[in-house]
Design a protein around this nucleic acid. Structure first.
Length: 152
DNA sequence: GCCAACGTTGGC
DNA sequence: GCCAACGTTGGC
């Protein structure tokens, strides 16, 4: 069992959007960063637990829990010239970008804000709170996962 | 292989 | 809207 944190801008796709999807499930498309891709493609397993993080909003922070619901497969939005995340260099015969599907587990009773996460002494090594980090998908250690859960 | 220019992310 | 940090691109 692995633990992850995945960012989304709530104006684009929020935890409530995920909860309202059919089967409460959604392909996590549009990731165009190699490190994030590698984690989804090579390391994520069905059942892995995911913190759902809202970025670029009034109170950035963790708002819910999801889980990995599929193996990785090619991100078809990269092949679609009309799509915002179109990448002409991704060839259907040799896809460059991959995604996993994510399923809603639950919303937290409150937002665990980035500010609080930064102040927690047990989370100094969490990639999220390290300076300049921009990864949209990142690993979370088991101890970090538990520390964050206990903040709720 | 270096590195300047440029684009994006995301907190504030 | 600003801007720091970082990734990518492409000329050389």
């Amino acid at each position: 069992m692995n633990y992850w944190l995945m960012k989304s801008e709530p104006s684009e796709f929020s935890i409530d959007d995920l909860a309202q999807r059919p089967n409460q499930r959604e392909p996590w498309d549009g990731v165009r960063n190699y490190q994030a891709r590698n984690m989804m493609r090579d390391e994520m397993c069905i059942g892995d637990q995911v913190f759902f993080y809202h970025s670029n909003c009034e109170i950035p922070g963790i708002v819910g829990i999801a889980e990995v619901a599929s193996e990785a497969y090619p991100d078809a939005t990269a092949f679609d010239a009309e799509d915002k995340h179109y990448d002409p260099k991704s060839d259907p015969d040799n896809p460059r970008w991959f995604l996993v599907e994510v399923r809603f587990v639950r919303k937290l009773s409150r937002t665990l804000s980035l500010k609080e996460l930064k102040e927690h002494v047990g989370l100094k090594d969490l990639a999220l709170v390290r300076k300049g980090n921009r990864l949209s998908v990142m690993p979370v250690g088991k101890a970090e996962w538990q520390a964050i859960c206990s903040m709720e």
